[in-house]
């Protein structure tokens, strides 16, 4: 027997033992850590999900950052800046988590800039008025929280830990959005109309954030078996609709959906039809702001190149000085 054959044999044993342990850990609802054996598909699915999630946080900074100069008061500017800074932080936590699976951050950034990676379609919608900042906080961050709270228990340790951190910070985002809408809803008739208009435009896109209906979501099944996802897209969407139905009453506004009802038999909230063709179009890069967002991201990366290079050169020089002095 050649050495190669022996190596191959022991690798097969390693894989079998690894797979057995992996399955046991998943069955026990324990966590998988970076150095553990894991199926190639699990690694691939997680890398895709976490990096897309990270990209979404980074691209998500743009629509809001565009409003910092136009925020109506110094307090609102400070709050919005804190929120945008949080999004950057969330992106970095998630890139770190994705890196533990073996893909370096620079590669993920390259993929995003080259247009090879996806991010949440919600950030390709335009932010037309100040009320939109309120609606984004309330509806978009609200949907994100609904999606993300169960991810704190995702079977992959680093992802779950990153999500715990993200969720803690995200609740401020939703409350500040709600507050913006509440003040506008109780303001002048024009302000009130502006708030209602923003809710009208952000309602359906935020419902689509949960992803396609269960019957059109082939990856969900595997993801739930692996305990990355804990609930199906439709289940989470229905839960979200139920929460919004109550909260919108406090705002004194309306959700633009006459078909919302609670189904006693299924125990789920139901909503009117959503335009899934629009969802697919936006996801395929043909939404209202896709080109603008990508161009801005590329520009920021290229404009920042000299800073990255200077910092690296400085670090190298300092290290050399230190080595010579020693």
């Amino acid at each position: 027997m050649t050495t190669t054959a022996i190596d191959a044999g022991s690798r097969v044993d390693e894989d079998t033992a690894g797979e057995q342990l992996f399955n046991e850990l998943i069955a026990q609802d324990s966590r998988i850590e970076p150095r553990d054996w894991m199926p190639a598909d699990y690694r691939k699915a997680l890398t895709r999900q976490i990096s897309q999630h990270a990209h979404s946080e980074i691209i998500g900074m743009q629509p809001e950052a565009n409003w910092i100069t136009r925020a109506p008061s110094l307090k609102r500017k400070a709050v919005l800046m804190a929120k945008v800074q949080d999004e950057a932080g969330h992106g970095l936590y998630l890139y770190s988590a994705a890196e533990t699976l073996g893909t370096p951050r620079d590669k993920m950034t390259e993929d995003l800039i080259a247009g090879k990676a996806r991010y949440s379609s919600i950030f390709n919608y335009p932010v037309r008025t100040w009320a939109d900042i309120g609606a984004i906080g309330w509806l978009v961050d609200g949907a994100a929280i609904c999606n993300q709270v169960p991810l704190c228990r995702a079977s992959y340790g680093p992802y779950g830990r990153a999500m715990v951190r993200v969720c803690k910070e995200e609740s401020f985002h939703q409350r500040q959005g709600f507050e913006i809408l509440l003040e506008l809803a109780n303001g002048t008739p024009e302000q009130r109309a502006m708030a209602q208009d923003a809710v009208n435009r952000w309602y359906a896109p935020s419902l689509m954030m949960f992803g396609p209906p269960d019957e059109d979501s082939p990856n969900s099944q595997k993801s739930m078996e692996w305990k990355i996802k804990r609930f199906s897209n439709d289940e989470l969407r229905s839960r979200f609709v139920g929460m919004m139905v109550e909260q919108v009453k406090v705002l004194g506004l309306e959700l633009p959906d006459k078909e919302i009802r609670y189904n006693d038999e299924t125990g789920r909230w139901e909503h009117g039809p959503l335009d899934w063709n629009e969802f697919k179009e936006v996801l395929a890069g043909r939404g209202p702001c896709n080109a603008q967002r990508m161009e801005r991201r590329r520009e920021a990366h290229e404009d920042g190149a000299w800073v990255r290079e200077a910092a690296a050169a400085y670090a190298e020089k300092q290290a050399l000085k230190y080595a010579q002095a020693a």
């Binding site: 533990t100 073996g102 951050r105 340790g157």
Partner: peptide, 26 residues
Amino acid sequence: GGSTTGDDGAKAPSSGPQEPRAAWPL
């Protein structure tokens, strides 16, 4: 670099794809 948000060790995962050196250290 690139592997330790897990508390489980600083080595890159053995079964993962080969990783070029990150531009900035971790």
